[in-house]
Amino acid sequence: MPGQPLRLRTGVRFDVLDVPAEAGTEALRRLAPGSPVALRGDRMELLLAAGSAEEVPGVLDWLEWGAVTLDLRLLGAGDTVEAPPPPAGAVMSGRAGAVQGAAVWLRPPGPGRGVEALLPAMPAVGRGGSAPDLVRLLDTVAAQCHRVRLRRSCAGPAVSGRNQPLAFS
């Protein structure tokens, strides 16, 4: 329908890992240069290989992040995500003209080519050496999500003059 945002079904060609933008910025180093990444307000949407959303909880447990509360969401089979509008022209102009809260491509997918080979995947999938390693990406994202949470809890209001919740005495 005209005026309605395009919804993309996840779990078919890609899954989505939704993290705080502050945590996702560090993860960009673990992605292939052509890996699509969207920015939606203060959240970053990292595209993963299809089926990865099912693997993530087990990988986080294996990495010993399973018991830690992390601000990340997974979109896999049966979910949908709002597609950012295609970038205007060859060069992105940032967030100019974007509707508040609407997603924008931070790294748009390349025109006319599949990006599946560039998406982070489990090494056992046998996609050769070209795909970024999902395990390393998740370890980076989990550590950054945890740092963001600690930073935000430390920046909270002081309670009875004790504003160092992580200090030892």
Rank of each mutant, 00 (worst) to 15 (best):
D79W: 11
D79A: 15
D79H: 15
E82F: 06
E82R: 11
A83Q: 15
A83M: 13
P84F: 13
P84G: 12
P84Y: 08
P85E: 14
P85V: 08
P85K: 08
P85F: 11
P85D: 13
P85I: 03
P87K: 08
P87V: 15
P87F: 01
P87S: 07
A88N: 00
A88H: 07
A88Y: 00
A88T: 10
A90I: 04
A90W: 13
M92K: 06
S93T: 12
S93L: 15
G94E: 08
R95C: 03
R95T: 12
A96W: 11
A96V: 13
G97Q: 10
G97E: 07
G97H: 08
G97A: 12
G97S: 05
A98K: 05
A98H: 04
V99H: 01
V99M: 11
Q100D: 11
Q100H: 02
Q100F: 11
G101K: 08
G101Y: 10
A102V: 01
A103P: 15
A103E: 06
A103I: 06
V104E: 12
W105H: 11
W105G: 05
W105L: 09
L106G: 03
L106A: 10
L106Q: 07
R107W: 04
R107I: 13
R107S: 09
P108D: 06
G110M: 12
P111H: 12
G112F: 14
G112P: 05
R113W: 07
R113S: 09
G114S: 15
V115G: 12
V115H: 15
V115F: 15
V115S: 08
V115I: 10
E116P: 04
E116W: 12
A117H: 10
A117P: 00
A117M: 02
L118H: 01
L118D: 13
L119Q: 00
L119H: 02
L119W: 03
L119K: 03
P120H: 04
A121T: 08
A121R: 13
P123T: 02
A124C: 01
A124S: 15
A124Q: 12
V125L: 15
V125G: 03
G126H: 05
G126R: 09
G128A: 01
G128K: 05
G128C: 02
G129E: 10
G129L: 10
S130F: 04
S130I: 06
S130K: 01
S130R: 13
A131Q: 02
A131V: 00
A131K: 00
D133P: 00
D133Y: 03
V135Q: 01
V135L: 09
L137A: 04
L137D: 05
L138P: 03
